[in-house]
């Protein structure tokens, strides 16, 4: 059913992505592809993977932006994936019921056996979360790794989406954004996390954390311009005598 689940969904599983920390290594995108090409949405078809213009289905893409001018300018790496919105128009436009939002945890999914490949959901998503699989003739999207996060054969610490598990910089966090006391909700509150394109009214679940303000006066590392002596210069004793002798 493509009508949205009625009533407030208490649980809203999603991601928090820290744009201050992301180093743009694309490991999240690669591990996402690796996991999901064998997961519930498998395969994530590649077209001409070794050709001049390789193309294929990915659920996670890392953009890199330059923001601001001159000394105030900065480079920001920006991973982009499904935001599992509270008001996902991609679900309501679906004519077949293939797209749905789960009432129990807010995850937005596609039932590939019902999808007719009309592509309207991808038109309805401002975030580019949905990619059409030419080969399978159906739409595919991020599942928030439902086959990992509820997988009881995994150790509890591994029950996170592949992108979160692999991030070497810990720029990605997974949790329940519907619970104000969860670690991710506290992180969002503390760092003033924001919604992408809030003006669209889709109420994304995933939040992004802004780059931290740059420290003033210390260059990019905030270290002092000159190294201070680690210990006061000795004036007496054998080392003092040597110092005076060698300084002459």
């Amino acid at each position: 059913m493509t009508s949205l689940p009625a009533g407030p969904s208490r649980k809203r599983l999603g991601l928090v992505i820290d744009l201050d920390i992301c180093v743009g290594c694309h490991a999240c995108a690669v591990n996402c592809k690796e996991w999901n090409t064998g997961g519930v949405a498998a395969p994530l078809t590649d077209l001409a993977p070794y050709g001049a213009d390789p193309d294929g289905v990915w659920f996670n893409r890392v953009h890199t932006y330059e923001v601001g001018e001159g000394p105030a300018g900065r480079t920001v790496h920006f991973p982009r994936s499904c935001l599992h919105c509270a008001e996902p128009a991609c679900v309501t436009v679906c004519p077949t019921g293939a797209s749905f939002k789960r009432a129990e945890d807010g995850i937005v999914l596609v039932d590939e056996d019902l999808c007719i490949g009309c592509k309207l959901c991808s038109w309805a998503c401002p975030y580019g979360a949905r990619e059409f699989d030419e080969d399978a003739g159906v739409m595919k999207k991020c599942t928030l790794c439902i086959d990992r996060i509820y997988n009881e054969t995994f150790d509890p610490e591994d029950r996170v989406p592949a992108c979160v598990a692999t991030c070497p910089a810990s720029a990605r966090h997974f949790g329940d954004l519907g619970d104000p006391d969860s670690a991710v909700s506290k992180l969002v509150a503390e760092r003033e996390g924001f919604d992408l394109m809030a003006e669209m009214g889709y109420a994304p679940t995933n939040k992004y954390l802004p780059p931290r303000p740059r420290r003033q006066g210390g260059g990019c590392t905030s270290a002092p311009a000159r190294l201070a002596p680690a210990a006061p210069v000795t004036t007496g004793g054998l080392l003092g005598w040597l110092d005076r002798l060698l300084s002459q």
């Binding site: 744009l19 890199t64 932006y65 330059e66 001018e69 900065r74 919604d195």
Partner: peptide, 14 residues
Amino acid sequence: SATGLGSFGTVRLL
């Protein structure tokens, strides 16, 4: 607004 980085300056794809 798409990247949420507008408050830091002009956003350009690098």
